[in-house]
């Protein structure tokens, strides 16, 4: 892996090593390290896992196997905004399926998919402890509860990619 000195968003080996150092160089810090990598780079790339394995002295397959076990860890790039809808019993009973359909209608993607412009990833998750405000979704770190299907377009609008010229999705 080459390291670069520009402000690119691709993880450089040095960045990854720095994260490993910060979290601690033992196997038991693997999950904090993976969290941290994801926070910095959006997802955990194969290359990042290779570096982490080498730094921790464990096998890459172990890092990969661990990362793929947990639903909050992504080993593939995700959309800029991640929409999570709960479909566990409390939300299910309060009509989460209708909310799910509304999101699919608004974005044209099914759960597990990412919009073509890479702006949204949509996933169905297990209970997020928001049962008191069921049905609930989370968009990134923001919670939306007591939802109705009608409320969805407005919520999603807040995260819409900008259509200005910069192309950065500012």
């Amino acid at each position: 892996m080459k390291s670069c000195n520009s402000d690119c968003c691709v993880p450089c080996e040095a960045d990854i090593v720095a994260i490993v150092d910060k979290c601690g160089r033992t196997e038991c810090n693997l999950i904090p390290i993976l969290h941290e990598l994801q926070r910095s780079f959006g997802y955990i790339s194969d290359e990042a896992m290779e570096t982490v394995a080498a730094e921790l002295g464990i096998t890459v397959s172990q890092v990969h196997g661990t990362a793929t076990f947990y639903t909050l860890l992504y080993t593939r790039p995700q959309g800029k905004n991640i929409i999570k809808i709960c479909d566990s019993p409390p939300c299910h009973l309060q009509g989460s399926k209708a909310i799910q359909a509304a999101i699919t209608k608004a974005l044209g993607i099914e759960p597990g998919e990412t919009t073509l412009d890479g702006n949204f990833t949509f996933e169905v998750v297990s209970c997020m402890g928001l049962c008191g405000v069921a049905p609930a979704i989370m968009v990134n770190d923001d919670v939306y509860g007591n939802l109705t299907a009608e409320a969805i377009p407005e919520i999603l609008d807040k995260y819409a990619a900008c259509s200005c010229c910069c192309g950065e999705g500012c």
Partner: peptide, 19 residues
């Protein structure tokens, strides 16, 4: 050697070479 490991979970679990 560390080639084979469990990947994913539940019914989707497979024993597979790295990544």
């Amino acid at each position: 050697v560390g080639t084979l490991f469990a990947v994913d979970r539940g019914f989707d679990t497979v024993i597979a070479p790295t990544a």
